[in-house]
Computed example of a mutant assay.
Amino acid sequence: MVIWVNEQIDPSGILYSCIACCDEEMAQECHQSFQERLTEQQRADGWVARLRTVESWDEVPANALKLD
């Protein structure tokens, strides 16, 4: 099983928001949305939108919105 994890991380490395799902297309759309919603100031300050995969729900951050 592949689980797609979208994360927005603030400049200090703290996870700000996270959405996880098993649908790659939905994950890609979510990632694009995360990217587009970062302002230029947030980007300059070091905010990051990251998309990664994991193999188990146990590897998904506990505070994530989990869509299955």
Rank of each mutant, 00 (worst) to 15 (best):
1 M>F: 08
1 M>G: 12
1 M>N: 13
2 V>D: 11
2 V>K: 09
3 I>G: 15
3 I>S: 15
4 W>N: 09
5 V>L: 08
5 V>S: 13
5 V>Y: 12
5 V>P: 02
5 V>I: 02
6 N>A: 07
6 N>T: 01
6 N>W: 10
7 E>Y: 10
7 E>R: 06
7 E>A: 08
7 E>Q: 12
7 E>I: 01
8 Q>N: 11
9 I>T: 05
10 D>Q: 07
11 P>K: 11
11 P>D: 06
11 P>S: 08
12 S>D: 13
12 S>N: 07
13 G>C: 04
13 G>F: 08
13 G>D: 04
14 I>A: 15
14 I>V: 11
15 L>M: 06
16 Y>S: 15
16 Y>P: 01
16 Y>R: 11
16 Y>E: 15
16 Y>N: 14
18 C>Y: 06
18 C>H: 10
19 I>A: 10
19 I>Q: 11
20 A>F: 05
22 C>K: 08
22 C>M: 06
22 C>G: 09
22 C>T: 09
22 C>I: 04
23 D>F: 07
23 D>Q: 05
23 D>R: 03
23 D>H: 07
24 E>Q: 06
24 E>Y: 09
24 E>V: 02
25 E>Q: 06
26 M>A: 12
27 A>F: 06
27 A>C: 02
27 A>S: 05
27 A>I: 01
28 Q>S: 03
28 Q>P: 00
28 Q>E: 03
29 E>A: 14
30 C>T: 04
30 C>G: 02
30 C>F: 09
30 C>P: 00
32 Q>I: 03
32 Q>V: 03
33 S>A: 13
33 S>H: 12
34 F>W: 08
34 F>I: 04
34 F>K: 01
35 Q>E: 14
36 E>S: 11
37 R>K: 11
37 R>E: 14
37 R>L: 06
37 R>H: 14
38 L>Q: 09
38 L>T: 09
38 L>Y: 12
39 T>A: 13
39 T>D: 12
39 T>Q: 10
40 E>S: 11
40 E>Q: 09
43 R>Y: 14
43 R>I: 14
43 R>P: 04
44 A>N: 05
44 A>P: 00
47 W>F: 15
47 W>C: 12
48 V>E: 13
48 V>P: 00
48 V>M: 12
48 V>T: 06
48 V>R: 07
49 A>F: 05
49 A>D: 10
49 A>R: 04
50 R>W: 13
50 R>A: 08
50 R>M: 09
51 L>W: 02
51 L>A: 05
51 L>H: 06
51 L>V: 01
52 R>I: 05
52 R>D: 08
52 R>Y: 14
53 T>R: 06
53 T>W: 11
53 T>C: 11
53 T>A: 07
54 V>N: 14
54 V>L: 11
55 E>D: 12
55 E>R: 07
56 S>I: 01
56 S>P: 00
57 W>E: 14
58 D>N: 07
58 D>G: 04
58 D>H: 12
60 V>R: 10
60 V>F: 13
60 V>I: 09
61 P>K: 03
61 P>W: 03
62 A>T: 02
62 A>D: 10
62 A>G: 03
62 A>V: 02
63 N>S: 08
63 N>Q: 07
63 N>I: 04
63 N>M: 08
63 N>R: 05
64 A>Y: 03
65 L>D: 01
65 L>S: 02
65 L>I: 01
66 K>Q: 04
66 K>E: 03
66 K>F: 02
67 L>N: 00
67 L>M: 00
67 L>E: 01
67 L>G: 00
68 D>G: 03
